[in-house]
């Protein structure tokens, strides 16, 4: 078990190092932050001082050396735009995104498992057809489109919900509903497929023959065995929200890590880009680890 986690951690660390190097050099190729942060009529002297202050005068490779040295002391360098440690900026955004992801994925998981299991219990029935159809539409819809249609209907026309920002509970409803739709559609289909297989197995027939009522059959006998593929997709989708809520966060002005990242890229705030990449890569690593542990928990045959 420990060896397995260690091996995984080493592999992830290697890819993280590669990623940091790649992004470090690529991001500096986009241009000089001086042009963005100082007014057009800034004197050469002011420019030089700005460049000196943020260490932009050295050759790229020296800058990289400095950055690695700072990282070794767990210093993630200051954000140029916000003049405070980049890690603080990123972690603040990550907290918002994490909250969003946890709430959304909890709702999605519960809804998809319950509805998908019930649909699988009566394949081809009315309930099954309706849910299949809607889950397909949900899995096909682009989230940015749903987001803006949602804003038009619920914020502009009906004036029930705020268009963007955070603050009250109401601000969370639209982003969560938009993020809910696609994972819900995808996971529902996987649950349904896995449950159909599980329900046609011999032990379920035995349980039925013994006279076990339908509900325990679905949720106790079959579900546990159908969970493995479902968990894979849940993890995949959760990772997607953790690093890919960019679109929804941008539309709703939600200060999560995705929006921070886009802003940092557009503003050439290199330290924040790098810190955000590291945080989201670590988050994905932990997420995958959690999923592997869940496998072992659900299926005693799986050992690491």
């Amino acid at each position: 078990m420990k060896r397995f986690i260690g091996k995984r951690a080493i592999a992830s660390a290697i890819s993280l190092v590669g990623l940091v190097i790649l992004v470090f050099f690529l991001s500096r190729l986009t241009g000089d932050p001086t042009d963005l942060y100082l007014p057009i009529d800034a004197t050469q002297e002011m420019r030089d001082r700005f460049r000196e202050l943020h260490g932009l005068n050295d050759p790229l490779i020296v800058q990289f050396g400095h950055y690695v040295a700072d990282l070794a002391r767990l210093d993630f360098v200051e954000s140029i735009r916000q003049a405070r440690p980049a890690m603080d900026v990123v972690l603040e955004g990550f907290r918002w995104t994490l909250t969003l992801a946890v709430i959304t994925m909890t709702l999605v998981t519960v809804a998809a498992i319950v509805i998908g299991s019930l649909a699988a219990f009566n394949v081809g029935g009315v309930f099954d057809r309706i849910t299949s159809f809607f889950s397909l539409i949900g899995a096909s819809a682009p989230d940015f489109w749903i987001a803006i249609v949602g804003i038009v209907i619920f914020s502009v026309q009906l004036r029930w919900l705020p268009t963007s920002g955070t603050g009250t509970m109401w601000h969370w409803i639209l982003p969560i509903s938009v993020l809910f739709i696609r994972p819900f559609g995808l996971i529902l289909q996987v649950v349904r497929g896995a449950m159909i297989t599980a329900l046609s197995s011999a032990y379920v027939k035995t349980a039925k023959a013994k006279g076990v009522p339908p509900r325990p059959i679905i949720f106790v006998h079959a579900l546990r065995n159908a969970m493995l593929p479902v968990i894979t997709v849940i993890g995949d989708q959760a990772a997607g929200i953790l690093n890919g809520a960019v679109v929804v966060e941008t539309i709703f002005g939600f200060p999560g890590i995705g929006k921070q990242m886009i802003d940092a890229i557009l503003q050439r705030d290199f330290a924040v880009i790098l810190a955000a990449i590291m945080v989201s890569a670590i988050a994905i690593f932990l997420m995958n680890l959690l999923i592997d542990l869940a496998y072992a928990l659900l299926d005693p045959r799986i050992r690491y």
């Binding site: 990623l19 890919g244 990242m261 955000a276």
Partner: peptide
């Protein structure tokens, strides 16, 4: 595995903005 562990959309954003 390495490609899988990258946050793909974010990576696409960075690479496209730079290239």
């Amino acid at each position: 595995d390495v490609i899988m562990s990258f946050p793909s959309l974010l990576l696409a954003v960075i690479v496209l903005y730079m290239l």
